[in-house]
Design a protein around this nucleic acid. Structure first.
Length: 139
DNA sequence: GCCAACGTTGGC
DNA sequence: GCCAACGTTGGC
C-alpha cells in the first residue's frame, strides 16, 4: 500500500466538509500540475492519505482512503487531467502541525517540508508511521 | 503583508 | 532550447 498527502485550503475545501461526505467519498478535482498528476496516476484503490490544511491551520487533520483510482477529471474539458475519489476514514486525535513536522529531524525529507507547494504528495511508509504516531494514533 | 520558492509563459 | 519575466502558493 502506498501513502499520500492531499493539501487543501480550508477556505475552499475543509476536512469538515470532506468528512461530511461520509463513506460516499468525494472527487478530488482541479489538479493542474504535472507532478501532482503523476502522483494521482500512481494511486491505487485502498491507498491511504493524509488530509492537510494549508494557509489556515497548517496541520494534518485527518486520514483518507483512495476509493477510486485516477480517471479523467470531470471538471476538465481537455481530457488532459485526472482526478481520484477519496473518502474520509477518521480525524487525527491530535492534528500534526507543520511546525511539529519541521521540529522532527526524521521528517526533514517529507515533501511537505521540501516542497510545500505541491498539492498532491507522496509519503513514505516511515513518515506515515511517525506522523500517525504524533497524531495520536496508536500502532 | 512580505517574500522565497516554484511553475509557466513567451521572446529570442 | 534557453532564460527572463511574471503569477501563484504558502509559510512566516
Amino acid at each position: 500500500m502506498a501513502y499520500w498527502l492531499f493539501k487543501s485550503e480550508p477556505g475552499s475545501w475543509s476536512w469538515d466538509q470532506h468528512n461530511a461526505k461520509g463513506k460516499s467519498g468525494d472527487e478530488w478535482t482541479g489538479i493542474r500540475n504535472y507532478q501532482a498528476r503523476n502522483n494521482l496516476r500512481a494511486m491505487k484503490k485502498g491507498d491511504r492519505g493524509f488530509f492537510y490544511h494549508s494557509g489556515e491551520g497548517k496541520e494534518i487533520v485527518g486520514i483518507v482512503e483512495v476509493a477510486r483510482p485516477a480517471h479523467p477529471d470531470p471538471t476538465d474539458k481537455t481530457g488532459e487531467w485526472v482526478s481520484v475519489e477519496i473518502r474520509p476514514l477518521h480525524a487525527l486525535p491530535k492534528p500534526v502541525s507543520i511546525a511539529a513536522i519541521k521540529a522532527e529531524p526524521r521528517l526533514k525529507d517529507m515533501v511537505l517540508v521540501r516542497n510545500s507547494r505541491l498539492s498532491v504528495q507522496p509519503v513514505s511508509a516511515e513518515e506515515w508511521r511517525l506522523v500517525s504516531k504524533m497524531g495520536g494514533l496508536g500502532q
